[in-house]
Design a protein around this nucleic acid. Sequence first.
DNA 1: GTCTATAAATGGATAGAC
DNA 2: GTCTATCCATTTATAGAC
Lengths: 196, 196
Amino acid sequence: MSVSVEERRAERHAAVRDQVVAAAWRLAAEKGLTGFGLRDVAASVGMRAPSLYSYFPSKFAIYDAMFADGYRAFRERIATVRPSRSRRVSLVRAAETYLDFCQEDPARHQLLFLRVVPGFEPSPESYAEAVVVLDDMRVLLAGMGLHDRRHLDLWTALTAGLASQQAANDPEGKRWTALVEPAMDMYLSYVEGDLS
Amino acid sequence: MSVSVEERRAERHAAVRDQVVAAAWRLAAEKGLTGFGLRDVAASVGMRAPSLYSYFPSKFAIYDAMFADGYRAFRERIATVRPSRSRRVSLVRAAETYLDFCQEDPARHQLLFLRVVPGFEPSPESYAEAVVVLDDMRVLLAGMGLHDRRHLDLWTALTAGLASQQAANDPEGKRWTALVEPAMDMYLSYVEGDLS
DNA sequence: GTCTATAAATGGATAGAC
DNA sequence: GTCTATCCATTTATAGAC
């Protein structure tokens, strides 16, 4: 059960990385996704800016870690959705969870689901986290008998649209969130003929 | 038919303002919505940065003018949609026009329809341009017998979702654009019972 | 690994001459 | 109205001492 010095060092290193990412999320929520600098990040973990470079080679690398982290958090959140025998209930719960997740942190919504940071694109490894979540959704719909990618794309468009309209036009309210049930009803009656 | 000196001066002033806004759009398309500076803007209209302050009191004021200008352009574009007796055709054409408009300039899509510039909110006057367009859409749906705001919100969410998924996940392709017809079919069969 | 110091650039914005 | 000059803050990132 002994652990090598290198392993403990690596653990500490990873722990600090996580703190940096958490600090970046806090600042993004406060000042906007592109509104914070490395000094802010460093200060809020008790460091000076240059020390961050022991953990991340660039600011984009921090965005990249945030991206992966955000999708892992999203996947965990989606995993908490209580399953139901009713397709309708399952879809409504999934969509509501997604909408809540977006609304509770608009900066995260922008980083994960929109293309907002000029010049930033997630690395293949981080993008893989996004693919995993999308695959979860694919499996969920497949479990309902929907196997066509177009069915999945239509569902993501519908929920993404509710989220983006909510964020852009009524960030504090429920104008579009309140439409989740009708939206899922609409979706379900449309795909009804294709259910297996 | 004579025009006062002041009027001609005002006209020239307005013309330069328009050039500045046009230059800002070009740069936003090139370098990202938040990726350009006032020096760039000034240079691309043959000026130095301080001279811009004769036309706009701040960078946010330029974003504000872009916002109003973008919604005017959007309204003109929507006005070109050929009317049809078929509700389905009308909705498909409107949605396709919206999607094309978004895809042809992602920075414009972000400024008009997402909340991307940290700290920027449109002035009431500029926001009024957005309200006008939304009212056009309200009238269009009302002409089809759909008078409920929820019908309008559901339609905007659906089209906005197609646009944002397209922009974020397949900016060069047609993966979600290709779903306009099914999406409109879905929408129409759902609201069918409420048509007057 | 963290620091100071600094690079090298850029940001928005202002003062004041012309 | 436009310019030069400049302010002042800030940015990301690097060099090198400790």
